[in-house]
């Protein structure tokens, strides 16, 4: 549902990267779409590792009411600690001089993400693939440093199961903690496996690291934007077939999820 905020600014926060040129791209793409829609007076992005930085961006925004939406997957170290600290925010609404800043939930925890993950899985598998013989694996980063990091994935896996989708199995897996995505062949014995990365961008992890862990690349490739050919599904491993999608955060529907988080803020947190 669109929002009407003709006097407010929207600020989208992303991680960005000093190494991979594609990390910030989805945030810019979604920002351009939202700006074009005219729902906000201005739309901005800021990044942890790119420019404008979180510390620079306040000088760019001239509106007195600002909605801040983290384009992050999970609630954890970044959304709870780093972003509020860098932007000098406390709680849901912060008054900074003459500005009122509303800090919304990250996109990854919005309820519509479940349908997007399912949609993405169906989009990449070929016509004729038997869904009841297909395992869906949602892959995340995972880190032993923060339990919240895996919660976003396990919550989605449970939500997909609860929707009664006919997949043979729905599983979670991670790069850096068990169950490891590198073990996908033994995590399930379904003949067809579809892996959807629960990441914001086709960047370092989802485009370069995970394909090596899956066995579809022998070594880390160049960034997606610097290769002539994006990957082509499916991949055959003996009698198994693997499909690997692009990161969920690249889905154009994420622009609407960002706006939905603003609407959710107004309904649940606005005092």
């Amino acid at each position: 549902m669109p929002v009407s905020k003709p006097n407010s600014a929207l600020l989208i926060l992303g991680h960005g990267s000093t190494e991979n040129p594609d990390s910030a791209q989805p945030s810019w793409d979604h920002a351009d779409v939202i700006a074009e829609s005219g729902q906000f007076r201005s739309v901005h992005c800021a990044f942890w590792k790119e420019e404008p930085s979180f510390r620079q961006v306040w000088s760019m925004i001239e509106e007195e009411e600002i909605y801040v939406v983290p384009n992050f997957i999970s609630e954890g170290y970044f959304t709870r600690q780093v972003l509020p600290r860098e932007l000098e925010l406390e709680g849901h609404t912060t008054h900074l001089g003459n500005r009122t800043v509303h800090y919304c939930d990250p996109v990854g925890i919005h309820a519509t993400m479940t349908d997007l993950l399912i949609k993405r899985a169906y989009e990449i598998i070929d016509h004729g693939v038997k869904i009841e013989e297909t395992a869906l694996i949602i892959v995340g980063h995972g880190t032993n440093l923060n339990k919240k990091s895996t919660e976003a994935i396990t919550d989605q896996v449970e939500a997909i199961k609860a929707k009664g989708e006919p997949f043979a199995e729905v599983l979670d897996a991670y790069m850096e903690e068990a169950p490891f995505i590198a073990d996908w062949k033994t995590l399930t014995d379904a003949p067809t496996v579809v892996v959807v990365p629960f990441f914001i961008a086709d960047a370092l992890h989802s485009y370069q690291d995970i394909p090596v862990l899956l066995g579809i690349e022998k070594e880390i490739t160049e960034a997606a934007s610097q290769r002539e050919i994006f990957r082509q599904n499916p991949y055959r491993f003996g009698d198994r077939t693997l499909y690997y999608s692009s990161a969920i955060g690249t889905d154009p529907s994420l622009a609407q999820v960002i706006v939905d988080q603003v609407a959710y803020f107004d309904e649940h947190y606005l005092s």
Binding site: E50, E51, S53, Q56
Partner: peptide
């Protein structure tokens, strides 16, 4: 300008 130098003009003005 902000596409080439993000936030740089606003930083100077502020």
């Amino acid at each position: 300008l902000d596409c080439i130098y993000p936030g740089l003009f606003a930083t100077w003005i502020a």
